[in-house]
Design a protein around this nucleic acid. Structure first.
Lengths: 193, 193
DNA sequence: TCGATATATGTCGGGCCGATATATGACGGT
DNA sequence: ACCGTCATATATCGGCCCGACATATATCGA
């Protein structure tokens, strides 16, 4: 599923500009589910307009730059539903924090401690954003509450695990006084299965 | 963190070929944490060799094509530790399943049911792979067990939520007899905050 | 013998990210 | 009054990475 399709999906909830779509990815409906940069969103909207899947309307604003508001056409809506019905790819995760934990035995302890604190802060922030999204009046739909509940269940489980086991991870890291010694030590060529 | 750095990290556990690194992404150490295609791995190993971070050794095999086995140099190891200590980016998730649930009210019920079944099957398969990784003799390190435990906690939470609430989601989808009627219906232009 | 599967490496087009440029106006500090 | 910072808003561009394809060897079952 490409960015064009995802943008079209967001527009089923109502018209929006490229900037507003970016904000929805960051703290709105798609928080923690999907993500796209301006460098993807603006070209995607241009191509959607060329294909007749959206129409563009320029809107003047007072005290702010003008914006281009895009609306989904019936053709675009039908195409989105067809694309989403065609099948979905498995979840794709990219966790640099998980990589850091796997190599914790190579990192100074204070670095690992900082990473754990940072990760816990991000989990908490994501939970707050989900709470806000649930209070949103547009979330009366049971299916949006399902998506929010699934995210919250995973975040709470991750938080509970991290807070109860972080000492084990930090103990595996390199203690401050051994830091230089370890970096100079020869590497045992351990084979992995 | 680019693919080069992640490949270098895997090589701290011992020498490996590009093909073996791909398998480690799929069902080994990095299962559910990171992912890379052959189109990224092979050029990454070539560039790592050019930079002197790995050395390459060609190995003949009986009953199989030859392979190129890469080993991390001390320079490459030091560079990897420095890169990983420089800071980490927040987790990035791309869940087409979550998108499908958000738009469940636009999809036929049988499509949603199939997607839920598929997602549950993927969660279970990921749990099995984590169990195998934990039994692996190389996972005596407490930090690798931490990463596995974190993944398992999130997967179990997601599974429990899906199995107890899937009926709510499926009820929000389009019932079979109303399918054509809904697609022809006019779209109310609902604004999102 | 034919196709399927597994092992193994590589290229290439195109999609997407991150950085950068540009512009307007609000707000607070000196 | 002036300046920097922040938020709003759009757009481009280099480069990284994915997915598809090409290529090759060998085993196994139909």
């Amino acid at each position: 599923m490409d960015i064009k399709t995802v943008c079209a999906g967001l527009l089923t909830f109502g018209e929006a500009s490229g900037y507003e779509i970016k904000k929805l990815f960051e703290d709105g409906t798609f928080n923690g589910v999907y993500d796209a940069s301006f460098g993807s969103i603006y070209p995607a909207l241009t191509r959607l307009a060329e294909e007749g899947h959206v129409v563009c309307r320029e809107q003047e604003q007072h005290g702010r730059p003008d914006k281009k508001v895009y609306s989904l056409t019936p053709k675009g809506r039908a195409h989105f539903v067809a694309e989403l019905s065609r099948g979905i790819q498995p979840d794709r995760v990219r966790s640099e924090f998980a990589i850091a934990t796997i190599f914790a035995h190579l990192l100074p302890r204070d670095v690992i401690v900082a990473y754990v604190d940072q990760q816990i802060a991000e989990y908490r922030a994501a939970l707050v954003r989900l709470d806000e999204a649930e209070c949103d009046p547009s979330s009366e739909m049971t299916n949006l509450q399902f998506a929010i509940g699934l995210g919250r269940a995973q975040l709470n489980a991750a938080l509970a695990f991290m807070e109860s086991r972080r000492a084990l991870l930090e103990a595996a890291a390199v203690p401050p006084q051994q830091e230089t010694a370890v970096e100079a030590r020869a590497v045992p060529g351990v084979k992995h299965a």
